[in-house]
Computed example of a mutant assay.
Amino acid sequence: MRIMKPTRHLLLALCPMVVLGFLYYSSGRLHPWGWGHKSQKDLDSFFSVGRLFHSVYDKQGFLLKLDGNLPLELMYKYGNLSEGVCKPGYAAAKMTAIYPKFTKPAPMFLDPNFRRFTKISKFFPPFGMKMQEKIIDNILTATKSFGLEDELDSLSCKKCIIMGNGAILTNKSMGARIDEYNVIARLNEAPVSGYEKDVGSRTTMRITYPEGAIQKTERYEQDSLFVLSAFKALDFKWLRSMIFKERLRNTDGFWKSVARHVPREPSEMRILNPYFIQEAAFRFIGLPHNKGQMGRGNIPTLGTVAITMALHNCDEVAVAGFGYDMSTPHAPLHYYEKIRMAAIKQSWTHNISKEKEFLIKLVKAGVIQDLTHGICGSGC
Rank of each mutant, 00 (worst) to 15 (best):
M4C: 11
P6A: 06
T7K: 15
H9C: 15
L10E: 00
L14V: 11
P16K: 07
P16T: 06
L23H: 09
Y25S: 13
S27N: 13
P32T: 03
K41R: 14
S45R: 13
F46S: 03
H54A: 15
V56E: 07
V56C: 09
V56Y: 07
L66C: 01
K77T: 12
G84I: 01
G89K: 09
T96C: 05
I98Y: 02
Y99R: 10
P105K: 09
F109E: 06
F109W: 03
R115T: 12
K119V: 10
P126S: 02
F127K: 05
F127N: 06
I136C: 09
I136Y: 03
I136F: 04
A142H: 10
T143P: 04
G147S: 15
L148F: 14
E149H: 15
E149P: 08
D150P: 11
D150V: 10
S154K: 15
S156L: 14
K159C: 02
I161Y: 08
M163I: 04
S173P: 00
S173D: 13
M174Q: 13
G175I: 04
A176P: 05
R177M: 04
Y181D: 11
I184F: 03
I184D: 06
A185I: 12
A190H: 06
P191F: 11
S193L: 13
G200F: 11
T203L: 06
T203D: 04
M205S: 02
I207K: 05
E211F: 10
G212I: 04
Q215S: 12
E218N: 10
R219I: 01
R219H: 13
L228F: 01
S229D: 01
L234M: 02
D235I: 04
K237N: 15
S241I: 00
F254M: 08
K256S: 13
A259D: 00
R260L: 13
E265A: 15
P266M: 04
L272F: 06
Y275T: 03
I277R: 01
E279Q: 15
A280L: 07
F284E: 10
L287P: 05
H289E: 01
H289V: 01
G295T: 02
R296L: 13
G297F: 04
P300C: 05
P300G: 04
V305A: 02
I307W: 01
D315H: 03
V317K: 11
A318N: 05
P329V: 04
H330A: 14
A331L: 07
Y335D: 07
K338P: 02
I339S: 15
N351K: 04
K354C: 09
L362M: 12
V367W: 03
Q369E: 14
L371P: 13
G374V: 03
S378E: 07
S378F: 00
C380G: 05
C380W: 01
